[in-house]
Amino acid sequence: MFELSTNVATPKQLRQGDYSAYDALYLGDFSCPDYPKNFSADPDLLAGGVDTVKSQGKKCYLRLYAVPSNHDLPWVRKVAEKALSLPFDAFEVHNLGLLLMLREMGCNKPIHLGVFGNLYTDATARLVKDYGVTRVYPNPELSLKEAIYIRDHTPIEVLTPVHGKIPLVVSETCFIVEHSDKAVEGDCKFSCSQDHWLTRTKGEWSLKDTGRMTLSGSDLCMLEHVEELAAARLSAFYVQSHGEDVGYAARVGEIYRDALTRAFAGEPQGDLSSQLEALKGLAKMGLCNGYYYESAGRRYFGEN
């Protein structure tokens, strides 16, 4: 009926987290190849990871590095080669060169186009579909109407993020390392394990920075709109949990599992105030609706 997925960067997070609310997991941090024990960067971790996820009865997708430079491509290729021999259900790519490389490698697995794949049009969706893409994560700037149009006019499956910080920027270099007095050449000291924030008092702007990726300060929250999502026949939903504590995905997933189940069963949502309070408690800089309702991404529009 619907699929709810989230992301898991490392074997440790996979062991420690509770992902019982989810139907599928995206393994790997696509933004940083130096992140310790990152599924996206270490082929030796893949067999254990996919076994663990499959043993829980979930689909397992592998995220590939989003912004590979020429010198990254050989190791990214090794990761992909290893993953091709394992029971992953799909690869996620953000880079069109890598998409071409996968095709030339004879990739026979479905491919998902990730958030930094610049998917804005059905013309592009049709193009990447010819390269084996079966699911697209539209650029967050698109409205719900536009995402639905792309789904219907390509046609192609569309991943709909329902909660979590919005990926805004991905870079080949680490902003935290550049401004850290702890990191040294070749050893970042994992400084991103601490929460880093970009703030600007003038304008009350805040963004979360994880080094190579900058995320929205506020958490996207579509809890009050799940009936609309179900009515639109969207079916692949995603909780963005990169950069969050291990308990975040569990609590958010639980809330959305319940809400989506009710919505798809045609049951009323009832009073969501306690769930919204819980989600606000997890969001250090409040909630937003992203661009779904044709506004600047940081606004929040409730049902009422």
């Binding site: 930094f116 610049n118 967050p140 919005i166 920027v169 991905v170 870079s171 304008g203 929205s216 600047a296």
Partner: peptide, 19 residues
Amino acid sequence: VQTGKICPGKCIMSSYLKF
């Protein structure tokens, strides 16, 4: 330039904040 956030085609910060 090798440092800083220089991410053409990979950045939507501006529209997140204002439009």
